[in-house]
Computed example of a mutant assay.
Amino acid sequence: MGPLAGELSAAPPSCGPVRLIAVDGHAGSGKTTFTARLADALAPTVPGGAVPVLHLDDLASHEALFGWTGRLLDQVVDPLARGVTAHYEPYDWTTRRFTAPRALPAAPVVLIEGVGAGRAAVRPYLTRLLWLERTSEEAWPRGRRRDGIGLSAFWDMWTVAETRHFLADPSRPYADTLVRECKEGYELLPGHPTTA
């Protein structure tokens, strides 16, 4: 993880003064865990030693599982591009409502993780797009086990929505790096970025 962290922190900014890094992949692929480890690895390489993380689950909602592009661009990307702290309203999945604004500083490196983080509308602002290399057939059962039987109906709805999303707006073909979990931690493979 160290070499990747060094590479990312040394890359030129992509969103105003911010190096915006996206971690995408199927639900249940391990994005949140990987992103937390990447943030820890990046922390010593950036001034201030803190790497903010935006979880796209905070921008999605029951009514708009993938309809958060406008909110991301308006509430997060636009302020970061201007070098100011962003404020977004996280969604509470239990009460089914958006809550009080949460700050996201315009740090030297900011991580965005979640299904669809590498969508076409976001890619122009990204320094790098990382893809967790686990198929939906592998990832979705992991997610279902993690969330338990109580969310099985939600998962039934989610898998249909995710399939439709990636058919219309795939991220993997544009990934700079493919991340594969292995016994030693993570194996990093070159992606095949193409012109958006």
Rank of each mutant, 00 (worst) to 15 (best):
I21M: 06
I21D: 11
A22V: 09
A22Q: 10
H26Q: 13
S29K: 04
K31Y: 11
T32W: 04
T33K: 04
T33Q: 11
T33P: 01
F34M: 01
F34G: 01
T35E: 05
R37K: 13
L38W: 04
L38C: 03
A39F: 06
A39Q: 09
A41M: 01
L42Q: 04
A43R: 06
T45A: 14
T45E: 14
V46E: 08
V46D: 12
P47F: 00
P47R: 05
A50V: 14
V51G: 06
V51N: 06
P52V: 00
P52S: 05
H55P: 08
H55W: 12
L56C: 12
D58E: 15
L59D: 03
L59Y: 06
A60V: 02
A60W: 09
A60E: 12
S61V: 11
E63S: 15
E63K: 13
E63I: 00
E63Q: 15
A64L: 13
G67L: 14
W68M: 11
W68D: 13
W68V: 07
T69P: 01
G70M: 12
G70C: 07
R71S: 14
L73N: 08
D74G: 14
Q75N: 08
Q75W: 05
Q75A: 15
V77E: 12
V77R: 11
D78Y: 06
D78T: 14
L80W: 08
L80K: 07
A81N: 13
A81H: 09
R82L: 14
A86M: 03
A86C: 01
H87Q: 15
Y88L: 11
P90L: 01
P90I: 03
Y91G: 11
Y91N: 09
D92K: 07
W93D: 11
T94G: 10
T95R: 15
T95A: 14
R96W: 05
R97S: 11
F98P: 10
P101W: 07
A103N: 06
A103P: 13
A107K: 00
V109K: 05
V110M: 00
L111P: 07
L111F: 06
L111Y: 02
E113Q: 09
G118V: 07
G118F: 10
A120G: 02
A121Y: 06
V122S: 01
R123L: 07
R123I: 02
R123H: 01
P124R: 00
P124H: 03
P124L: 00
T127E: 11
T127W: 09
R128T: 08
R128I: 02
L129G: 02
L130G: 07
L130Y: 06
W131K: 10
E133L: 12
T135K: 10
S136L: 08
S136H: 10
E137W: 04
E137V: 08
E138Q: 15
E138T: 12
E138Y: 03
A139S: 01
W140P: 00
P141A: 05
R142Q: 15
G143Y: 02
G143H: 01
R144H: 02
R145C: 10
R145F: 02
R146V: 07
